[in-house]
């Protein structure tokens, strides 16, 4: 087996998972600056949505496809609720938001435990995603290719939304200069709410896809939240392309460092590298130049 090839594929595959969990956050944290610690629990809610849909429909393949939009709706609804009840009152107090949403994340975890029980639940993998295929002389599980596909669609869709639609223009206008956007007749309130809903919905989608990788339990989200923030911060806040580059960069780094060392050391080294990188470029890979004074 060609080691370089297999680790390239492994890196892309790790990167696609990273990007998936970070993409929603790149909207809510990156674009809006809201530190939402409950983002991981939105991912968890998406995973449980996949479980519930599978329990209702039975067929693993059909239910996976149905669960994707349903989880987007579930994540979005949770996001709307959080935004309406909590986050909007704290838009200019990031530390309060951090603590309050952390509290929400604990509540959601316990809620999941009460509804579904503490043990992890089993979400079956559809038969057409079992097995593997040879890419670059290395064996790649179909599930990983599926994840990559979902990521490409999600990121592509988001990029199109931000660049070509009226809503996307409004979102970017609010990010660049809130006051000016408001005086131009944009309802920043409605834009904030929609942005948060879309970001949270993407977390739900990520949750569905993660059921293909690991276990579905109440603490599913906590395992990914740090990685998600890492990707968004390293990529440059407010930049989708930054998140894409950072996710795949970190994925490849993880794959190659882990190959020559161990998983624990790889995790550690990546944190060190990201911290060192942020010393040189505190703004991340890319920056948005804004006219606001903050």
């Amino acid at each position: 087996m060609d080691v370089i090839g297999s680790q390239l594929v492994a890196g892309v595959s790790i990167g696609s998972v990273l990007l998936l969990v970070a993409i929603g956050l790149s909207l809510t944290f990156g674009q809006m600056g809201v530190i939402n610690m409950a983002h991981g629990e939105f991912i968890m809610a998406g995973a449980y949505t996949a479980y519930v849909v599978q329990q209702i429909l039975g067929d693993a393949g059909l239910s996976l496809l149905v669960a994707l939009p349903v989880a987007f709706a579930v994540g979005g609804a949770l996001g709307a609720l959080l935004e309406q009840l909590l986050v909007r009152h704290m838009y200019h107090r990031p530390l309060d938001t951090l603590l309050a949403t952390f509290g929400v994340s604990l509540v959601l975890q316990q809620l999941a435990r009460d509804i579904f029980g503490a043990p992890a639940v089993d979400v079956r993998t559809p038969s057409w995603l079992q097995g593997n295929v040879e890419v670059l002389g290395t064996v790649v599980p179909w599930t990983r290719l599926f994840i990559l596909g979902v990521v490409v669609v999600a990121v592509g869709g988001l990029a199109l939304l931000l660049t070509t639609t009226a809503l996307g223009r409004r979102i970017r206008a609010v990010v660049l200069n809130r006051q000016l956007a408001e005086t131009s007749g944009i309802s920043t309130r409605a834009t904030d709410r929609l942005t948060f809903v879309i970001g949270s919905g993407l977390a739900g989608v990520a949750g569905v896809v993660l059921t293909l990788v690991g276990s579905t339990g109440p603490t599913l989200g906590t395992g990914y939240i740090v990685d998600a923030f890492l990707v968004v911060v390293a990529g440059g806040i407010g930049q989708i392309r930054g998140a894409v580059l950072a996710a795949f960069g970190l994925g490849l780094l993880q794959a190659f460092v882990e190959l020559s060392t161990t998983a624990s050391i790889a995790k550690f080294l990546i944190l060190v590298i990201v911290v060192a990188f942020l010393q040189v470029r505190p703004q991340g890979l890319f920056t948005v130049r804004t006219r606001s004074l903050a």
């Binding site: 087996m1 492994a10 993660l210 603490t219 794959a255 161990t262 998983a263």
Partner: peptide, 20 residues
Amino acid sequence: EEYTPLGSTDFTTIANKVAS
């Protein structure tokens, strides 16, 4: 001989190492 941090969910590299 491979170790992963508790709660780790990415076994791409380790599974590759096991397989080869």
